[in-house]
Write a protein that binds this DNA or RNA. Sequence first.
DNA 1: AACTTATGTAAGAAAATATCACATAAAATA
DNA 2: TATTTTATGTGATATTTTCTTACATAAGTT
Lengths: 131, 131
Amino acid sequence: MGEKELRRSLSVFPIGTVMKLTDLTARKIRYYEEQGLIHPERNEGNRRMYSLNDVDVLLEIKDYLTEGVNMAGIKRLYELKEHEKADRLKATQHVLTDDDVRRILRSEFQAVGGLDGDNPYQNFDGSHIFR
Amino acid sequence: MGEKELRRSLSVFPIGTVMKLTDLTARKIRYYEEQGLIHPERNEGNRRMYSLNDVDVLLEIKDYLTEGVNMAGIKRLYELKEHEKADRLKATQHVLTDDDVRRILRSEFQAVGGLDGDNPYQNFDGSHIFR
DNA sequence: AACTTATGTAAGAAAATATCACATAAAATA
DNA sequence: TATTTTATGTGATATTTTCTTACATAAGTT
């Protein structure tokens, strides 16, 4: 792991900072952890400490949810080793319609359910914090 | 101010994180603030929140102290607009002997006192956190 | 010797975070 | 449609972190 990756995985933010950085509630942040999407470390006092990588994942989760992808779908996306396929998609297409998401999920790892196609939001420009 | 500078001045770290990042005690960190060397913001709950820039300044302060420069000297150094002269010195010379520091301080802004010339440490490579 | 500097430490208050439990609208499923 | 699950809100209580203020002190300075 290079120096840069190391810095990005340094656990330095308490949940309050992450709340502001992501505009998520503490409840949501802890829930996404419970769902295995992030793995913040704990300090000596048992407080969760988050890394820049965690923050990025949380922002991505927000994007996915806005797209209409449910937790099950998001988990499947993150199961793709290192997120590589999804990342490449985001990097090349930059904007995914609900239909795209649906097609990808179905074709790449079978049906996942939970896609209703009624969410108009699209925000796959990859512009996250501390890039 | 560019995007990068903005990120570096985002107040996101609580004092506990800064303590670990810099290996300074809370007492020292607050004291350097009291001396006007850093200016952490406060959150709604009155807790100090530090930026990457603050962390860098603290690491520089550590370096200066290790070099034998006292608070008065460090303040003078930071009085140099944007730290430009000191930065250029660090960038070009990379290693300053106590004697160098003494000469610089004396010639550039008169005597500052507090330099004993007995400190063997030198660490001006500029390799700080989150670069 | 007396004063100043830079830092340690202690006490009490306030803020942030933890866990656990219960509530619930919307979505999924039977 | 009735039932269950999902994703999140809210409240209570405990613990940790940080704040301010005050006093202490070794080392350096005058």
